[in-house]
Simulated assay, not measured.
Amino acid sequence: MKIINTALLSYGMSGKVFHAPFINLHEGFHLLGAWERSKKLIQDAYPGTRSYASLDELLAYDAVELVVVNTPTYTHYEYTKRALEAGKHVVVEKAFTSTVAEAEELKMLAEKQGKKLAVYQNRRWDSDFLTVKKVIESGKLGDIKEMEIHFDRYNLDLSYKTHKEEPNSGSGIVKDLGPHAIDQALHLFGMPQAVFADIRTIRPVSVVDDCFDILLYYPTLHVRIKATLIAKEPVPAYIIHGTNGSFLKSRADIQEGILLQGAKPGSADWGTEPESEQGTLNYLANGETIREKVQSEQGNYFEFYKGVYTALAEDKPMPVTADDGIRVMQIIEAAFKSQAEKRVIEL
């Protein structure tokens, strides 16, 4: 089996929770280490790894084949560009970049260098989203006409991650939670024809956007994407109405929560939601109304890195491509333009 030597550009929350456990689990990856600026923790968690003192040191190490850019959004363009120029494959966290132009430049650079470039969109493998996708594909809802995707939280205080709360090219909720929900919508339905957005700052302590409502217009479908940090009582994360029925589903994926508690992936019941979080399906069958609970699919972020391994070992497309990332950035730029100009933006 081909072994792909991999290094992280950070071993903070995202490195500990979303990347290292799954890279370590896959027998085709060898986790070499991480760039650690102050605390040196990766060697305690993964004996035999290395703590790099600088990005230059990490990129100069010829053994590193894949670099995971899991640093603040405003650094993504610079660090991804440097990694590609150093001859490395790259997985870059969402938001892909700060602008569409940066995203397009990185795609072209990867192609020029003959390297693979992926955007980390783990929420495609959330249990709730996989359940929604299965219900839509079943055809029981008929033609989908309306869908809402909510990524709501309740937090009146500023995050300790200052790069998310202080004005910079990657801060704010649109570029933090927005890429998750936007990517899910595009994964289901492709690119819309137009975008309208209402982007606001609503918490008294906040100086960046912390609430948005984005409407994607398709020829026969409207998708509403909403996120806020003042949702004390959550509504269903997914509300879908079709010509033959409706489906409501909570945001109930357990993976992030148990990973934060130190759980390691790989068990048979990994990503299994509580039965109490099953979605409600109400549809017509042979002229009669059927209202039933839908067993949730199992979530598994490991599928992303399985896809990355296949892409690198067998020269296949990445599981989430640079083009996917560019399309998300196009929606984000259109949303900010819509907010600024108070109008629908044609794509």
Rank of each mutant, 00 (worst) to 15 (best):
F196M: 13
L31H: 01
K134Q: 12
E166H: 07
E36P: 00
N24P: 03
Y305M: 07
V67P: 00
K161Q: 10
N122R: 08
A95W: 01
L260S: 10
G178K: 05
T272E: 10
H222T: 12
A20R: 02
G190V: 14
S267P: 00
E137V: 06
C211P: 01
D269I: 15
V91D: 00
L84G: 01
D198P: 01
D183A: 14
K337P: 00
A227Y: 02
G245N: 10
V69L: 05
S206A: 15
A110Y: 02
Q255M: 14
H30A: 13
Q43E: 15
A237H: 05
N286D: 15
H19I: 15
K161P: 00
D253E: 07
Y46A: 09
Q113V: 07
N168L: 12
L130F: 04
K40C: 02
A86F: 01
R251A: 14
P167V: 10
T73A: 15
G279H: 02
E93S: 15
A181C: 08
K164A: 09
I136T: 02
P21C: 11
L109F: 04
V195C: 06
L312W: 02
V174C: 11
L106S: 12
G142Y: 03
E93H: 09
D56Y: 03
H163C: 13
Q295S: 10
K40M: 06
E146F: 14
I326Y: 06
K40V: 11
E341F: 03
L221K: 11
Q339H: 09
K306T: 13
R203S: 12
V135L: 05
L58C: 14
I290H: 09
L25C: 07
I326H: 08
K140F: 04
V235K: 03
A63C: 12
L248S: 07
G299E: 09
G257A: 09
T220H: 04
D269E: 14
D323I: 09
R251H: 06
E277T: 14
T99F: 04
F96Q: 08
T243V: 12
F189N: 12
D176Y: 11
M13F: 06
D183I: 13
H89C: 11
L59D: 00
R224Q: 15
K145T: 15
R343Y: 06
N286F: 03
E104M: 13
V195F: 03
D213H: 11
D62E: 14
E314W: 02
V328L: 10
L117M: 09
N155E: 14
K116H: 12
D324P: 07
L59A: 01
L58S: 00
L186G: 08
E288L: 11
E256C: 05
Y160M: 13
R82H: 11
S171R: 04
S127L: 07
L156F: 10
G12L: 03
A45Q: 08
K88R: 13
G266W: 03
D152A: 10
I4F: 04
G287T: 05
V135W: 01
R82D: 08
Y52E: 01
